[in-house]
Every structure is written in structure tokens, then in C-alpha cells.
Write a protein that binds this DNA or RNA. Sequence first.
DNA 1: GGATATTGTTCAAAAAACGAACAATAGATG
DNA 2: CATCTATTGTTCGTTTTTTGAACAATATCC
Lengths: 409, 409
Amino acid sequence: MRKINTRDFHVATRTTSREINRRIALNLIREHQPISRADLARRMNVTRGVASVLVQELIGQGLIYEGATGEAARGRKPTFLHIRTQDRLAIAVDVRFSKTYLMLSDFSGRQLSLESYDTIFTIPEFIRGLATRVRRLLKTKGIQGSCEGIGVVVPGMVDQRTGRILNAPTLGWREVDIRDSLAAATGLPVQVENSGRACSLAHLWLERGETASAMQSFVYVNVSDGVGVGMVIGGELVRGHNHIAGEFGHMPLSLDGPPCMCGMTGCWEAYISNLATLSRYFGRNLSKLSPKSPREHPSSSFTVLDLITRARGGDGKATAAIQATARFLGLGLATIVNVVNPDCIYLAGEITTAWDLIENTVREALGERALTTAAARTPLRVSATHEYPRLRGAAALIAAPTFAAPRVA
Amino acid sequence: MRKINTRDFHVATRTTSREINRRIALNLIREHQPISRADLARRMNVTRGVASVLVQELIGQGLIYEGATGEAARGRKPTFLHIRTQDRLAIAVDVRFSKTYLMLSDFSGRQLSLESYDTIFTIPEFIRGLATRVRRLLKTKGIQGSCEGIGVVVPGMVDQRTGRILNAPTLGWREVDIRDSLAAATGLPVQVENSGRACSLAHLWLERGETASAMQSFVYVNVSDGVGVGMVIGGELVRGHNHIAGEFGHMPLSLDGPPCMCGMTGCWEAYISNLATLSRYFGRNLSKLSPKSPREHPSSSFTVLDLITRARGGDGKATAAIQATARFLGLGLATIVNVVNPDCIYLAGEITTAWDLIENTVREALGERALTTAAARTPLRVSATHEYPRLRGAAALIAAPTFAAPRVA
DNA sequence: GGATATTGTTCAAAAAACGAACAATAGATG
DNA sequence: CATCTATTGTTCGTTTTTTGAACAATATCC
């Protein structure tokens, strides 16, 4: 029951119905490939005639292709249809403090190549360097024409609509536009997004399989140096009026809790970030260093992964630190459950490699503060451990428009 | 950029385009009435021919009617179109602990009659009594045919889709269906909804005017005995997988804070509910009484309204209690701003009658924890003081489907 | 009184789903 | 081996809808 926005609506033209049905067909083919025209018609509840026309147009647009002939018990054998993803490409860029990663990906999120180099912090040089690498990549692979865009993810706040980076403290970038300059330098369309949200987009648009595709509302929580969250409701990422929606990392668990990088106290992030977990182990507050010198890398060689190794090795203090984080993780998730009440919560980050150790603690804490037992049973899934979720999200920025529902009404 | 749900999609038929455009036209007429066909065509960016056909159909469906002839500087004078709301009726029911309210409303939310009686807590008797009053109301008003449904709001958790009340602790109702039985007893369609959410629906569907209709994403916070919240994102109320979405009332401000009615500690509600405010004034915890005897009315004759009167009269302790509540209100709103980042937040409840006293405190607290200055400036509006927001919400349950966007793709 | 401007209707053309018929294909059956 | 049956995919006339242009009605301006 959606209210029509009388300030931004979309009148149906005579091509609108076709567009809608073509897009539905495309998504059904994507989900059930290989699939025949007749089967598609049955699933769509339209006649085979209509399905044939839709398929013909999708082939004409180069979105699908006819594959092998299938087997049937009797009668004419079906021609299988497949989504064309292998030869549709996107360049994914993940800008982090230490390195910038550059991946060539197809439209299914498959990694075709990967390179990384030291991040350049001055914008013009960053753009120039990146554009050079993009051009080189396209030339060496000989795929000039089939690359459809560049997706860039950064650790910071982004106005995705205008492609403006509002504030990326880690990189020291404020109010800079990289979309238009990068687009001009490469001749390719560019999309920019926050890295936490990008992970949720990767899940929404690239994850396959029964369970993943059934999830229309989920929250993706990535615990690393900070807490990145993407909130997807009704199949759509919620971005918010000021582009900050989903910032659960800075909700308070206790108003007078430990100080957070953001300058406030008691944020969820201050309880569960990697720094918080390590601080707990070392008995001092490591995170205090960071806000003053944002660009200074927390280069302490000892990471949460090492801590988990120690915990597995029988280090009681390490176990205690991890379990404390697990408990606060669960308590924060309870608020997400009560507020968003999603179909599912995906978890990512170093701490999730210890999921077997912490699951019970997390679930117990979640159960303590979830408002109903049904809500307490909200599935918690450790995000499928693809190597580079952020880069997949960057690729999703380019691939998604092909499959998204047309804007109507 | 919405993902199509391959398990629940809507193929466009040959009537779909018309349906979409008719609905858009209806909403434009509603917003800009009185309006001519030609003006409608301009706003929709279609030819006058199309607008004429759409208007003709809407008149045929009895949704709009032709009114007076307007004035024009030159040329043929326009025929004005109006929405037909005056003679389309809904019955709104608000079930509260003390009384049940029964309002006859038109489709614009205007109150035509109102009665109230002691709430009956046994379901069959409640249904029988309510059905009798509904029939009597329809008969005395002689409007049998023009009433299009009954909207019922209850203080509790509701599965709006099935019309089942999952848990209404105040009334002592658990897992009861009132929709089907009331529909059978009255012969009218029935919709049931949680009262907090209903208020947000009233805002979404019945509020008029420039500012209100521009708000597609907002959060409605009603502070009274508890904290009821409705979360509207993209023109749609978010209900959640287990029907609890929007329960910001039970997010913690401090994990080890004061006890809450829900059994947990440190919930926002435990800081800002009327009981919490009064407890602060009286220096003892009044809310502790409640969880044990949920049906026992908090009948202390001294209310927050009285407290506000004392504060205005110069009572320092009263002012302190109210200001403390205001501060916690703002701190909680900050989380809403960071998480949902709505266009606007509407506030309701007794405490808002002291808005002139508390606004600065609320805004200051909000600013303390809002992640960006832009977000800190999120408009806070005291909900237009209609007398019965819950009843208006109940009426909205019946009126909304007429104006909602068709489900497509 | 004619020019002009505006509203609302009408009508042919293009585009889309719908429904039914038809061709193609291949196993089942006698 | 001929025929029946089931299934896939195409074709075509029908209905519904937007589109664009023409037209009638109405009223003001000069």
C-alpha cells in the first residue's frame, strides 16, 4: 500500500507494460535459467505468444541468449534461454586507506582480474592514476566495448544520486566529486557508493540461490574497523534524506559508554569494532588514538584474526574479549530486529570467522532484548565468504540497473 | 532501484497502464482540487484526450465529480473536478483500556459522529457489542450503503495482513482474530492495525497541505503511556517480517538504565513515557507497578498535563522532570535520524503540549548525537492537533486503498 | 466582428496483451 | 509404419490503450 508521490510520479506510456513485463521475464530467466519460453510463460501466467515476443526483445537487447535444446518427455524440445552475464563487464574499485583495489568483474560478480596499489589521497592525482589503470586494463584485456561502467566504493558518506563524496574521514576527503571527473577521464559511466552499503547491494543483486533471492528485506552488518550497515527494505536499499540511513553503528548501547571514533560515547561501534575487541584484550583503549589522526593507519600488526587464533588455542583472555564483543553484537542486533524487523540479517567482518565460537552468545543476547520470540529467531547468516564483498558491491552498482524494476506510478 | 521479487510479482495486463494513470490522476485531483481536465493533463504530461478519458472513468467509478465552472482569463471556462469524499464513509474504532471509541468518518478523515463506551474484554461479547453499535449507527444515520468498511486500532501487536491481534497486553488479548468475526457480524470489510502505526497512516493518507504531502519518508513518534512509533519509508508503512518494525520504544539508551514495562532495562520508553516523567517528578518508580497487573489502569489522577501546568506555573521540580524527558527524547530521536534518516519526524503525545518549553532541549540533544549537521536539522513537527489521531488512522485503513499506487512489477 | 486563446471531444494510428489457431517436433500406440 | 498425443514456439485477428492532431465550443482582446 504505497502512496503515490504527487511530486515525482511516472505516468504509464504505451511502452510501459512491455517494459514491466520484459523486466519480469529477465529476472525469471535469471533465477531459473536454463528455462524455455513455454516455462517462462507459465511462470508469468501469460500466453506463450507474449513470452515469445518478450524473449525476442530481450535477445535483441543482448540481455539473454538461446542456448542448447533441452530434453522433454514428449513433444517438441524446448530451446533454453540464458542470461548474458559472462561478456558484460564492470570495473569495480574499492578505495581503502592502505590500498586501492581494482577488479574486472562480469555481471554475475565473477572476478576476472584484480590489482591493487597504494591509495593516492589527492583527488586529481587519484583520478588520473585510476583512469590510467582503467584504460590499461581495458586495453590489455581487449574488452573496450563490453565494459559498461565503473563502480567505486569508499569508506565514507556518499550522495549516490550526484556521485559526491560528502565525508570520508579515513581518506581525508570532504565534499569532493569523483564521479564526473572519473567519467570524463575514462569515458565510462561511474557510480559511487559507501562501502558498507555496497556490500548489501552485492547481496541484493548478485547473490544467487533459493534463500538469498527470497530475502526482500534484510540488514547487512559488516564489523571491521568501524561498523558498516546496509538496510534493504522491500528489495530496495534505504539511503535516507541526508544519505546516512542505516547508521546503526552509532546508536548508543549505553549513553555513558566507551568513547567512539565519531566523538560520541557508548556507540554500538565502540563496543564491537575490531579496535574495541582488541582494546578489551589489551586492557587499554586503542581507539582513542584514531580520531585525532584519521589517516594514521592502525598498523598494529596484531589483528582480531590473531586474537581469534589465540582464543582457539585456549587463551582465556582472548576468549573473554571475543565473547564480550559477541554479547554486545547480539544486543545491538536486537535493536535492528525490533526496529527494522528484517527477514534476515547478514554478518560480515573478521569476527565472523569465529562464528562457531560466538553464535550462541550472539543469539542469547539477541533473545534478551528482542521483543518477541519470533523476532528473536530472525536468521543470522554469516555472509557467504566471497573474497571481496566490497568489490562485488561496486560491480553491483553497474549491473543492478539492468535488472531493477522500472519506476512506475 | 528496486529488485523485482520473483516470488511475488505482478505482470502488466492490458488494463494496467490505465489503472496506473487513473490512480495518478486521482491523486493529482485530490491534491490540487479544484482542477480542470486541461490542467490535469498538463500536470500529468499527457494529452487532454487521455485526461478526459481518465476523468470520465473516475467519474464512472464515483471517485470524483464535476463541480462549478471556473474562471479563465480568456477562452473556454474550465469545469472543475473534485474528489468525492464527503459521502464516502468509514467507521473508525479505537479500543483502549478504559473506553472503546466509535467514530463515523468520511474519507477525508472528517468526524461525523463519535461515541464511546466501556471496553469489553471478552472477545465474543466485544464483537457482539461492537457490531450492534455499528448497525445502530448506520441505521440512525441512514447511510447503510455508503459505509465502506470498519477500521479498528488496538494498543498491541497486529498482523495487519490476516487481521489477527498477536498480543495486546493492555487488553489482555493474545492471538485472537477480530477481523473475520466482526466482518461476519456487520457485513462490512474490517481492517485491524496497531494504534501507533495507525497514527502514521493518518498522517500519510489524510493529512493535506504542501508540507505534509511532500513527506514520503517520515517517522511518527507518539509518547504517552508507552512510545508508539510508525515508520513510513518511500510512502509506505514498514511493518516488518514479524509485524514489529518501528519499535524504537525499546531500543536501549543505556543497557543498565531504568526498568521498562516490557521487562527489559534502559529502553527509550523507560526514559520518556508519561510514567517515566511522572516518576522523575515524584522521585519514585511508578512504572514498576504496571507489568504485574497490565489491566490495572494507571488511574493516578495526576497526569503529565498537570505536570506541565505546574512547570508553567514556576514549579522548578516539574520543569526539571520535563526537561530531563525532553533531553532523552532528543537523544532517542538522534538514533531514529541516524538509522532511518527520514524527511521529517512527527511528534505526538501529552508532552508535546509543552513543545515551546522543550523544543530547544530536544533539538540540542538531537544535535549531540546526530551524525551530520544536516541530519541534526531534520524537521521535528508536533503532529497537527487533531482531536483523535488514532481514530483518523483507523479511518485511513479503509480510505487508503482507494488512493494507493497499484502493485506493479 | 475577426483574431486569439483556452477547454474539452473526437478520431485515426501505433503499441500492447489476449486468445485461438497453427506449424514443428518427437515420443507413444496399435 | 502410420497415427495419435503432447509439447514448444509462432502467427494473426481482436481488444485496449496511449499518441498526436484535428475540431468544436467558449470567451476575451483589439
